[in-house]
Design a protein around this nucleic acid. Structure first.
Lengths: 194, 194
DNA sequence: CCAAAAAGAGACCGATCATTCACTTTTTTA
DNA sequence: TAAAAAAGTGAATGATCGGTCTCTTTTTGG
């Protein structure tokens, strides 16, 4: 019973970069067998279907990113520092690893065809935005940021510019685009610092 | 010989929303047969492969958007008006029609797996950005905009926030997100108006 | 260390995939 | 309008798809 859980996690981790780069429709169970070096039966014992596996893979990637930000930000005392830490994390960790942002990849594929995945992506976007706006509101409450810092607007800006930045950086094969976008987002914090 | 060209265009137009919503890997030639009401041979007479068709579909969608903006902007005399017209076009025409932005859909699918498509998306992004920065530079030359209006930065902002806005609006099933983003982008023009 | 239970292997299934091609129908040209 | 050329049909192909199931191997608990 313990082995099963380890193997299941192993399959998710090995499958994640495959789904994230090739897409759900573009990934075959043979790709998963190759990535895990398991036979069909070994994979299907732990997942009822390719769709079920893809959903767990998205959960895994979404949590990986979320927990990564949590770790990168936890010990920073100021709200401004937390925002910078969060933005730096997104700047550094995404592009070269695992084929980019899972929200972008799974979201763009699923939006018109896969309501279950779409709902998962929706929840991930909410978590993304809420974390940013919470940092800003905390910063306002402790006197770091002025009241004219619109938390929701800024959160949306970060999300959209980040996703667009991942897209353009990947298509252009140039991480400088995302780096530049992160720099712009940092600069927009400044006017609201008290 | 004339019929062939008409049929080819017909296939492209009918296939475009299918590819744009289901993705390339997610679209089968049976889907194309259903959309066009043609038999296999009737499609393959005009396109060597599914991949060839998908490339022409992306060209079609990219040009459709580009020409749409051109038309929406042509008779507007001022640079500010042109920027507003362009932004309004993107606000209104994309979401409900054909499954969203082709650059986003094809780009997110192709970036890691399809170098030919990737190059086409790259060219489309360049055209998108260049049009915006050209309007700004023209506006600076005719005295509408101040010199501190960074054309390249603003073009990148429009692209990234727009693509991110399409993504979030589609996932949330709410065009207000994109509408709000367009409003933010308009507001950012104001400080640079002379 | 052994028996029971769990995990993994891999042949096999029908469906569907992209693509081909001999043939019929339609369009074009003279 | 008739012959030639072009366009469209649809059955057939082999590969690959996701998924199943029986059997072997490994792990687990006593």
């Amino acid at each position: 019973m313990r082995k099963a859980e380890r193997t299941k996690q192993f399959i998710i981790e090995k499958s994640a970069p495959v789904f994230n780069t090739k897409g759900i429709a573009g990934t075959s169970m043979n790709d998963i067998m190759e990535a895990t070096q398991l036979a069909k039966g070994g994979v299907y014992r732990h997942f009822a279907s390719k769709e079920a596996l893809s959903l767990e893979v998205f959960n895994y990637l979404s949590n990986l990113m979320h927990d990564g930000v949590t770790g990168a930000v936890r010990e920073i005392p100021t709200a401004k520092g937390k925002l910078y830490g969060l933005l730096d994390f997104y700047d550094n960790r995404i592009l070269s690893k695992w084929g980019g942002c899972a929200i972008l990849n799974f979201g763009a594929e699923a939006d018109d065809t896969n309501p279950v995945m779409k709902e998962k992506v929706r929840a991930a976007i909410h978590r993304f935005k809420n974390r940013i706006s919470k940092i800003i509101i905390d910063g306002q409450e402790n006197g770091e940021f002025s009241k004219d810092f619109d938390a929701e607007n800024y959160a949306i800006k970060v999300f959209t510019m980040y996703e667009g930045g991942v897209l353009i950086s990947k298509i252009e094969n140039n991480p400088e685009y995302l780096h530049h976008i992160i720099a712009m987002l940092k600069k927009e914090i400044e006017p609201h610092i008290l």
